[in-house]
Write a protein that binds this DNA or RNA. Sequence first.
DNA 1: TAACCCAGGATTGGATCCAATATCAATTCT
DNA 2: AGAATTGATATTGGATCCAATCCTGGGTTA
Lengths: 216, 216
Amino acid sequence: MRPPTTQEFVLDELRRLILTGEMAAGAPIRQDALAERLGVSRVPLREALRTLEGEGQVVYRPHRGYQVADLSLDDLLEVYRIRELLETEATHKAVPSLTDEDIDRLVQAEADIEKAALAGDIVGMAAANRQFHFVVLEASGMPRLTRLVRVLWDATDAYRALYYSSSENRERVHREHHAIIAAIRARKTDEVIRLWDEHRDGAVIALRAIVPAHPS
Amino acid sequence: MRPPTTQEFVLDELRRLILTGEMAAGAPIRQDALAERLGVSRVPLREALRTLEGEGQVVYRPHRGYQVADLSLDDLLEVYRIRELLETEATHKAVPSLTDEDIDRLVQAEADIEKAALAGDIVGMAAANRQFHFVVLEASGMPRLTRLVRVLWDATDAYRALYYSSSENRERVHREHHAIIAAIRARKTDEVIRLWDEHRDGAVIALRAIVPAHPS
DNA sequence: TAACCCAGGATTGGATCCAATATCAATTCT
DNA sequence: AGAATTGATATTGGATCCAATCCTGGGTTA
């Protein structure tokens, strides 16, 4: 059940702690306390932190340690702009070659989102939502691009959780996802791209209201 | 002179070893031997490797260790395609707001490239060439995009070194750089973008001949 | 009063040691 | 003979310990 290495276990835990807000944005990370809390030594913790640093989830200064990254509004807008560029490319490549199984996976992922939403399971929703988006990315045949989007995705996970806490937002996401599935079924690539842009824009508008205006 | 932490020193060394080909693409990395060679323990080495893994410079499998990543032709083409998407965006943002000092830096970087080329200093050339390209990226006001391009850049550093070993290629790069500087001076954004695309395409064509066709 | 300085504690960085896993060759069994 | 197994060795993973750096508070001095 638990991953083959302690580092991976720690990495998963840290992602969860950041996603759920248990580790607040901007908070310094005390390695000793955190390691003890997770029941591991500081070595695997430090390696996991270094991975997160590479992804921009935490920031690091030599001899001063790590702290949870917090995104300014500018950061967030940049992340969404870059996602637009990369996801548009991926959609161009992927839509014509999506298989029926891929579409089934989209439908299944959307169902999982709604199920987790009903259960109030934030972590489960984030996971299913990610599934949904990455069906298309992974079908693009561009693994490196997919990986970059994954990192950008992770960077805003904490905010996405907030976004999803509103039932109004959830409703809209479901509508948009269904529209995207329909456009994919019809192989209307440009339409899919347009819908995704709208989907992101909706999130950005909602997030503008949530995100603290200040930088860290 | 030496960085404040051993990890950073090791990181710099590893980048250099990969850039110069002293660590061959695909080669497994024996931590014990490498640590001894660098005169450090395995702890900072492992943290540096983890950073490189996040950048895709090395690949890692649990309990099997790290090996130097080697790019297939497909990988390489993907890297350049993603760079095209991101650099086009950066150029749009940057060109109108580039200052005279920025342009001076471009000229200076180009001069440094030519100087290092004459001295046969591969590492110096790579550094100056990077300077040149990142003047524009950093002026884009998109730090996260800049960081992503930096990673993509690093990923192909080893091949770039090969590319530069041909005097014909060096000539062409100089011509193209000068054309880019001229277009920037004239604030012709679309022209700059076109020239950058040509610049990358030239590299891709040359690299097609160099890169082994096989994946790892 | 405010700036500087200097302990002492807190925290991070690195080295060494031991445990866990993988690799590989020799051996056994079918 | 070939496949599976087992044990020895090499290599990675993690814990503990020590060193280096940073931070904080109290005292000193201009």
